[in-house]
Simulated assay, not measured.
Amino acid sequence: MFKLVITILCLALIADAAFVRIPLNKPNKRRSVKNINALAAVLRHKYNPRKNVTSEELRNADNDAYYGAITIGTPPQHFQVLFDTGSSNLWIPGAPCAASDEACLTHNTYNASASSTYQLNNQSFAIQYGSGNLSGYLATDTVTISGLAVANQTFGVATAESNASFIAANFDGIFGMAFQQIAVDNVVPPFYNLYTQGLIDTPVFAFYLARNGTSSRGGELTLGGVDPKHYVGTLTYVDIFYESYWQIQVDSFSIDDTLVCLYCFAIVDTGTSLFGVPSDLYIGVQNAIGARSDTFGNYLVPCNYTSYLPVLYVNINGTSFNLTSDDYIVPVENDKGDIVCMSGFINSGGPVWVLGDVFIGKYYTVFDMEKDRIGFAPAAVNATVLN
């Protein structure tokens, strides 16, 4: 287990460690039908990868992605990264960009030659994902997050990216926060090093996503502990299934009084904006909320009918968490510029449920690597977040 591996390493350091708050940002624009469809395609590949291929997906720019600032190198080079509990690698674009690589050209890029703390790794790096791939090399340098300098962190430098959805993304790269077991090339994730180097108190982090926040006040990620101001009541904890993704067993999913799934597996993923439903249950869930498919396969409900829609109940370790239509119906803009009401349930592409930001936005979520568990509690409304 994670705590057994690192406790001895951290014993002498932990007394001076920090509890850290990371302000989160999110795009300040309305989602579009096109981008919701792109997200659905991404999710289907993420948890149903091709055999013998490591899968890590990019997020779509116009969805409610929550991202924040880090720096890499000496002197610091600045990046915005998506904090993703559904993957385990840190990667950012790297200079020089190829003339044809629009995604690289439109984002901040890492320049190894400009950093005095860069260490040559001599290993190539590649991630295969549903609609393309990225490739480059591994580098080792100092990675700083909220003033905490992680020494000798290895990360991916993408010099070629073929995923079109990354071109308009508001963030530069991905900061993976799942377990090392699913990291490409078995690279040690940066959160591990934050703890083993004594920079945080405990191997625990938590997300508060401000669903009605602004682009610059989108919520807060805490590293090294939990902030009680961000939730109400008590936390309900559930053990993770095994150390890879943040995967748990859910007692049941029900829509009003109708049982949808009993003792099912779910992955808790901050990198997924919506709510993933297993492929064999997907159509049934859409029918249960009265959503109907348009000619493009999008599931919509009349916007004047949303207040009559049923409640989804997610029972976790004996506690019921509910999502109303205010939570799972997403106003989006269609190709004509009209606002339509789309179901926030998307096909996960496999047998698992995916509790994405639709769920995490309503319920403060704690990821505890020390005790191999996840905690949930109702998120505080209008909680204070950092500027």
Results as ranks from 00 to 15, higher is better:
Ala61Val: 02
Gln197Ile: 01
Asn108Trp: 04
Asp62Cys: 07
Ser87Gly: 10
Lys34Ser: 12
Tyr66Arg: 07
Tyr245Cys: 04
Val354Gly: 02
Cys10Thr: 15
Ile255Cys: 08
Asn304His: 12
Ser348Gly: 09
Gly136Ser: 04
Tyr245Val: 01
Gln247Leu: 06
Ile182Trp: 03
Phe125Ile: 07
His107Ser: 03
Ala151Cys: 03
Gly361Tyr: 02
Gly276Trp: 03
Pro96Cys: 07
Glu57Tyr: 01
Phe125Cys: 08
Ile72Trp: 00
Leu4Ile: 11
Ile283Thr: 15
Ser116Phe: 04
Leu148Trp: 04
Asp141Ala: 01
Thr74Ala: 01
Asn317Phe: 01
Ile6Phe: 13
Phe207Met: 10
Asn89His: 08
Asn121Gln: 14
Asn315Lys: 15
Lys371Met: 10
Asp185Glu: 15
Ser124Cys: 04
Arg211Ala: 11
Cys264Tyr: 06
Glu102Thr: 14
Leu4Trp: 10
Phe205Ser: 05
Arg292Asn: 14
Val20Arg: 07
Asp269Ser: 09
Leu105Trp: 05
Asn304Asp: 14
Ile8Tyr: 12
Ser113Met: 09
Asn170Tyr: 15
Leu120Lys: 13
Gly233Pro: 09
Gly94Glu: 09
Ser162Trp: 01
Gly318Leu: 10
Val358His: 00
Lys3Met: 13
Asn163Ser: 15
Arg50Ile: 12
Ile8Leu: 13
Ser343Asn: 09
Leu274Trp: 04
Pro23Arg: 08
Gly271Cys: 04
Arg31Tyr: 11
Leu82Pro: 05
Ile70Tyr: 05
Pro49Thr: 07
Ser216Ile: 12
Thr222Ser: 12
Thr234Gly: 05
Gln128Lys: 12
Val204Gly: 08
Asp372Ile: 04
Gly173Met: 09
Asp327His: 11
Arg373Gly: 00
Tyr308Ile: 00
His107Val: 03
Pro190Ile: 14
Leu148Glu: 14
Ile167Met: 09
Phe179Val: 05
Leu386Arg: 05
Gly213Cys: 06
Thr106Arg: 14
Asn334Gly: 05
Thr270His: 07
Ser113Val: 11
Gly356Thr: 02
Leu120Thr: 14
Ala40Ile: 11
Ala95Asn: 11
Glu370Gln: 14
Val340Trp: 06
